[in-house]
Amino acid sequence: METAELESKVHGLETALAVQEANMAGAHSGTWSVMAVGAGALIVGIFLGMAIAKS
């Protein structure tokens, strides 16, 4: 293989790795958002259930 060809392949792999890391970071932040919304809904549901039980 020639040097230019190897450099091209390495650049392609670096780009693919950067894209994969960005996707993983986005997935993690999305996961935290979903968990926060779910926790909020759970808390609201608990208080709503207690209010209904008292009435």
Rank of each mutant, 00 (worst) to 15 (best):
G38E: 02
M50W: 14
A51Q: 09
E2R: 15
H28I: 13
G38M: 07
I52T: 04
A4G: 02
M1N: 04
T15S: 00
G12A: 10
I52F: 08
Q20C: 03
A25V: 10
S29E: 14
E14F: 09
L17F: 11
M50N: 02
A4I: 13
T31V: 13
T3P: 00
S29M: 15
M50Y: 12
A18P: 01
E14V: 13
F47K: 12
A22S: 01
L48V: 11
T31N: 06
G45W: 10
L17G: 14
I43E: 03
V19D: 00
L42D: 00
I43S: 05
E7H: 08
E5R: 15
G12P: 00
F47I: 13
G26V: 04
F47E: 07
A41L: 10
I43L: 13
F47M: 12
A36W: 00
W32L: 11
V44D: 01
E2G: 15
A27C: 14
F47P: 01
T31M: 10
I43C: 06
I46H: 06
E5S: 05
A39P: 01
E21F: 15
V19Q: 04
G45M: 12
M1W: 10
M24F: 09
V34K: 06
A22V: 01
A22L: 06
Q20L: 14
G40Q: 00
G49P: 09
V10K: 14
G26L: 08
L48R: 14
G38W: 10
E5D: 09
E14C: 13
L42T: 07
G38N: 06
I52K: 14
G49C: 10
A25M: 03
G40F: 04
A36R: 06
L6Y: 11
L17M: 10
M24G: 07
I46T: 09
K54W: 05
V10C: 11
L13T: 13
G45Q: 10
G40K: 05
K54L: 07
T31A: 15
S8M: 04
N23Q: 03
H11I: 02
E14G: 12
L48T: 05
F47H: 06
S33N: 03
T31R: 13
S33G: 00
A27P: 00
L48P: 00
E2T: 15
A41C: 05
I46Y: 07
V34Y: 11
T3I: 04
M1P: 01
G12I: 12
V10G: 07
V34Q: 06
E2P: 11
V34T: 09
S33C: 03
A22K: 07
L6M: 12
L48I: 12
K54V: 02
A22N: 00
T3S: 05
V34G: 01
E2M: 08
A22Q: 11
V19E: 03
A36N: 01
T3G: 02
E14N: 15
A27D: 06
G12M: 13
G12D: 11
I46C: 05
K54I: 04
A27T: 03
E5G: 05
V19Y: 00
L6N: 08
A39L: 05
A18S: 14
K9Y: 02
T31S: 07
T15L: 08
M1Y: 05
I43P: 02
E5V: 09
K54M: 07
V19C: 01
M50I: 10
I46F: 10
G49L: 14
E14R: 13
L42Y: 03
M35E: 01
E2Q: 13
G30Q: 03
